[in-house]
Amino acid sequence: MENQGMKMEDIAKLANVSKAAVSLAFSGKPGIGPDTRERILQVAYEAGYSPKSREVAVTKADKSLLFLVCTNSGIILEEYYQQPFFKELIHFIEERCRQKGYALIFSTLDVEFFQRDIQVVADEKRSVGTIVLGTNLTREQIRDIHAKLPNLIVLDTCFETLPVQFIQINNVMGAYQAGVYLCNIGHTSIGYIASNLRIHNFEERKRGFMAALSERGLRVSEAAYLSVAPTILTSQDELKRQLTTYLENGNSMPTAWFCECDYIAISAMKTMNELGIRVPQHTSVIGFDNINESLVVTPELTTIHVDKERMASLAVDLLTDTLSQGSQGTSKIIVDTILVERNSCAAPAGSGLAGQMPDSSGLD
């Protein structure tokens, strides 16, 4: 039975959390972990407390949009709202929703309980339209979401044969720009550091980069193709092992490396620094995404800028226009990229590091 005398402050005390955490749990917004959210909701249920229309469900459903994320995939973590790329993207989506007079509410699907969670979200009917973060989703998963949530925009991936609205980065173009840039500043020995978890975006980036090299008669040798975790901003022992093995086998250090995302690039620079490999004196590093962290590492990271603000605005505008004007067919929008030249890349020095680690003191 509903406890009319209980307030949000009482639930906060019972759950030993802040009132703000209780509000986040009821609204579905990010900012607390899934275990904390579940515990708050369980405490509220056991106390017989029912929030006023989910604390007004932020606003009425007819003026709310849902941001839907599938977590636990290795690419999208449970704390996705703290991952730099997605944090920036969410900020711009929230801002555009506010400008258009909509509230943005959040929900997550656990990849292990995908079908169950989609049905729960569909049954709740908390919003009139949904923006799905599609970065880590398969064609089949997006198809299943669309079947239950037809007013849908999918961000950060694209499957051409689905009759669904997509807004995607031009991954092929961005990686092609990176390859052309490295070649143009004189690099002919180039390595590639890939994500060990494969998604649509990374496959497209690989295609674009390899095309740029192929057009210039170059290729990445099999030995210089490394693979590491894509969500770590610190140095990685696994990358250290791969680089050490590569050099101990008598291979010359590539004069430049392309990394499939900025996480990998930043991690690579930190790992190389621990091995005494200086960037860009010994080797250049270029990333992809232009997250804010690319400006605070030393040296600042040369990267491919993804216009996250434009992607967010296009997603919200396309969805709200469809809702107000009715369906007029689906569209797939590709947002082009821009090369951002900073200090992690330079022309090759001309002195190789064949088969050995440079001394940690380095050479200018």
Rank of each mutant, 00 (worst) to 15 (best):
H305D: 15
C97L: 07
V306A: 08
E55P: 08
P30T: 07
L218F: 06
E293P: 01
V69C: 06
S221C: 13
A312N: 03
I338M: 13
A44F: 08
H200N: 14
G134M: 06
Q42D: 14
G5S: 14
S313I: 13
N16G: 07
Y176C: 00
A312Q: 05
F106Y: 15
M357K: 05
F166W: 04
Q325P: 04
V56D: 12
A265G: 02
E160R: 08
I334W: 02
K332D: 00
N171M: 06
V297G: 01
V132N: 00
N343K: 11
L14F: 03
P280T: 05
I190A: 03
I304F: 09
T71S: 05
S331W: 06
G186C: 07
F209K: 01
S73L: 11
V335E: 09
P280C: 05
T302G: 03
R139E: 02
A175P: 01
F159Q: 00
V228K: 07
S127W: 03
E124K: 14
D317Q: 09
I266L: 10
I75K: 07
N184M: 09
I185W: 03
Y176S: 04
K13D: 13
M210V: 10
A175M: 06
T231Y: 10
V43W: 01
S344D: 02
D321R: 02
Y246R: 02
Q99F: 01
Q165A: 13
E203D: 15
G191M: 03
D237G: 15
P254E: 07
T255C: 08
Y225A: 15
D35P: 05
D262M: 12
N343Q: 09
V154F: 00
L226K: 02
M6A: 13
S107L: 13
Y49T: 11
V228A: 05
G352N: 11
N251T: 02
V164W: 03
K308S: 10
E215S: 11
C97N: 04
D123V: 09
A212V: 08
A122Q: 06
M269H: 01
N184R: 12
S361P: 00
A178H: 05
L314W: 05
N196K: 15
E222L: 09
W257Y: 15
P230I: 07
S221R: 13
A211N: 15
H200W: 13
L353T: 02
R139S: 00
I232T: 14
K332F: 00
P230T: 04
E140C: 04
F159Y: 12
L318A: 12
S73P: 03
E38T: 13
E260T: 15
I190Q: 08
A194V: 10
C259Q: 03
N196C: 10
K148T: 07
G5L: 08
Q236A: 04
Q115N: 14
L197K: 14
Y225K: 15
R219V: 09
V279S: 00
A211D: 11
N249E: 15
N343H: 07
H91Y: 14
L65C: 08
P163T: 08
A354W: 09
L213C: 06
G5A: 07
R116P: 01
L247S: 07
H305V: 13
D336R: 11
S195K: 10
I232C: 04
G174H: 05
V279K: 00
A147L: 12
S227W: 04
G191E: 01
S189R: 13
